[in-house]
Amino acid sequence: MIKVTKELIKELAEDIMLEISDEEAEKVYQTEEKIRNEFLKVTNMNVDGIDPMHYPFDVVNTHLREDENPVTITKEQMMINAPSKDKDYVLIKKVVK
């Protein structure tokens, strides 16, 4: 198991596209350490033969929709929330010089 360090947290932040300060990395480190310590009692539990439970009920989804075009938003509706746009296009700044 790789030891958790502030450097690892900063590396992880970069991977998931978040910018964090050293001070914030320290806080995240403390949160993780606290949870990991509290989780020790859970780690040590014997759960042999117990399957993970992703949803509260083990119910098989039986109501998949028909394979038809579902209601989607129109292009005009979609563009309402674009931070920057030009007619039908969402704009971002040119990043290739």
Partner: peptide, 22 residues
């Protein structure tokens, strides 16, 4: 992406995203 996400979320949200990813 990174700057937008960092400024768009508060510290609590950023902390949970990072911890969850860990």
């Amino acid at each position: 992406f990174a700057t937008s996400r960092s400024l768009g979320f508060n510290e609590v949200v950023r902390n949970r995203i990072l911890t969850g990813n860990y």
